[in-house]
Design a protein around this nucleic acid. Structure first.
Lengths: 123, 123
DNA sequence: CCTTCAATTCGATAACCATCTGATTGATGA
DNA sequence: TCATCAATCAGATGGTTATCGAATTGAAGG
């Protein structure tokens, strides 16, 4: 039932660049949707804030265990949320043997915000 | 289970202005959360786009029926989504007897985006 | 080798929510 | 007055997902 009311129709004469633009647009729409879903959960929102917070020794790489210490959930649940954040492109995971370190992808985050602003025409 | 891991604790010596700031902060956090949830549903996202789209006769007031024509859902479902968008502060409803007209609240929308950007420190 | 510990995976459960149908309200016009 | 139509409400249902415990993997350290 998703996409039933698409714009579609307009079958022909796309130049290659037009198609590329469409694909990129759809990609960012999808990214947007993933980010919105990610931020819609209070726990993930909090986690993302922590990961993005400027603090401590290493700039911009937060140990997974630090995040766990701040969130009263099981390791399984935490892992689940981290996967969602990663799939949304909002964080990357740097693995050092046993440990996972989380990095906020500010460029993606910002790109999605910029994309959202364009909902407002003639700002 | 929501809010279990709050910042809280720190019982004393708040100046009045400090409290006001806290309240405002919490308000915008709540607004943020409502907006994220609103945008996380593809249908609501599409509706908001349409309401925000610059078009047609009246600038910035879209008849509810126009939105319904673009969304293959029942009137009840549409009403539900409109309520969510309104509760998130993203639209206001102007009623003219039988009809409802929807207006995107660009200032609220923009304010939430600005608030979100602050997740990224030292941009 | 065995233990420990961080992280992931699996299956189950409960809560949430988008959606529907049907009933209701309130305004319009014949 | 009655039929119509936009919008909302009430209740039910199905799908999605946040959460858990238990089992698994993989890397260190004794």
């Amino acid at each position: 039932m998703a996409g039933v009311h698409d714009i579609s129709s307009k079958p022909s004469h796309h130049g290659k660049s037009e198609i590329a633009v469409l694909k990129r647009k759809q990609l960012s729409e999808n990214q947007m949707h993933l980010m919105a879903k990610a931020l819609a959960d209070p726990r993930r929102y909090e986690m993302l804030r922590q990961i993005g917070a400027k603090n401590s020794a290493v700039p911009s790489a937060v140990p997974c265990t630090d995040v766990h210490d701040c969130q009263p959930v099981s390791a399984a649940t935490l892992s689940h949320h981290i996967k969602q954040l990663e799939m949304a492109g909002l964080i990357t995971i740097i693995r050092q043997c046993k440990f996972a370190n989380l990095v906020l992808q500010r460029n993606i985050f910002q790109a999605n915000l910029d994309h959202l602003e364009k909902i407002l025409p003639q700002t």
